[in-house]
């Protein structure tokens, strides 16, 4: 048996209940270092709630979650030091310049002045945004904003980065560039935890989990999932699972 700390994300029976609504129902999974872990599910399936618990924003009702070696319940602040997060909604400051946003977050994560300078420069070069460093973020097109948000989420070199629908609303070219960034980070050893509604993107993941009504219905590599459900692509697998047509339980639920 491997220790739970060997995994970057270790989740056991994690549950969140709001009133009498079970948003996340005893989910279990483990994410290995350097993996690109696709966290799929229809709207309202409980993905965002699960991510909020993993990032220390929301206290679990029950169960266990260890992220980057720290228990989210007992040491949420230590978890926060070791993770990056990029929200569904763009959440950098529109009224700050590109360089100011980078400096702010680098500063908050405790990077030294020298490191901030070096990092900012490297980051802007990598993003091809050197010329835009003094532009207000609000003036950038969405694709650029999302790339910047990803880079900022990675500024403190976290062990794992959570990306909540990072590519929604982004044009195909930028989407590809975005995935190139993701691959690069993954190769460098950062674990990627990503949610998306673009199922072609799911094919790029090392492993994919599909959440339905607060429960993880399937978890495997894209290839194995396709084989298991006899589908040509992830799109088919997702529709099959999300509609709940593969189980008797799902059928009953649907008839209700």
């Amino acid at each position: 048996m491997r220790e739970q700390n060997d995994y970057i994300v270790y989740v056991k029976d994690l549950t969140k209940v709001f009133g009498d609504f079970v948003a996340v129902d005893k989910i279990n999974f483990r994410v290995e270092k350097g993996e690109i872990f696709g966290f799929l599910g229809a709207n309202g399936a409980g993905k965002t709630t699960a991510i909020k618990m993993l990032t220390g924003l929301l206290a679990p009702t029950s169960g266990e979650a260890v992220v980057a070696g720290f228990d989210v319940r007992r040491e949420p602040e230590k978890v926060k030091y070791n993770i990056g997060y990029m929200s569904q909604k763009f959440s950098l400051y529109d009224d700050l310049k590109v360089s100011e946003n980078i400096r702010l977050y680098a500063g908050i994560y405790g990077l030294s002045r020298k490191e901030i300078k070096r990092k900012s420069k490297a980051l802007l070069e990598e993003l091809n945004m050197v010329a835009l460093r003094d532009k207000l973020v609000g003036e950038l097109p969405l694709g650029w904003k999302q790339k910047l948000a990803f880079a900022v989420a990675m500024i403190h070199e976290p062990a794992v980065v959570f990306l909540d629908e990072p590519t929604s609303g982004v044009d195909p070219i930028t989407r590809r560039q975005f995935w190139e960034m993701i691959y690069k980070a993954s190769v460098a050893g950062t674990t990627i935890f990503i949610t998306t509604h673009y199922l072609d993107e799911a094919e790029y993941c090392t492993r994919v989990s599909i959440m339905v009504d607060g429960v993880i219905e399937a978890l495997d590599t894209p290839k194995n999932l396709r084989l298991k459900y006899g589908a040509d692509n992830m799109q088919e697998v997702f529709v099959l699972l999300a509609r709940g047509e593969h189980t008797l339980q799902g059928k009953i639920k649907k008839e209700k």
Binding site: T55, G56, L57, E77, K78, K80, Y81, I83, Y85, S87, K89, F90, S91, L92, Y93, D94, Y105, I108, Y109
Partner: peptide, 14 residues
């Protein structure tokens, strides 16, 4: 309202 607090909240800021 802007959503910027979400990013702040996942940082270890006190």
């Amino acid at each position: 309202e802007m959503g910027t607090i979400e990013q702040i909240n996942v940082t270890p800021i006190k």
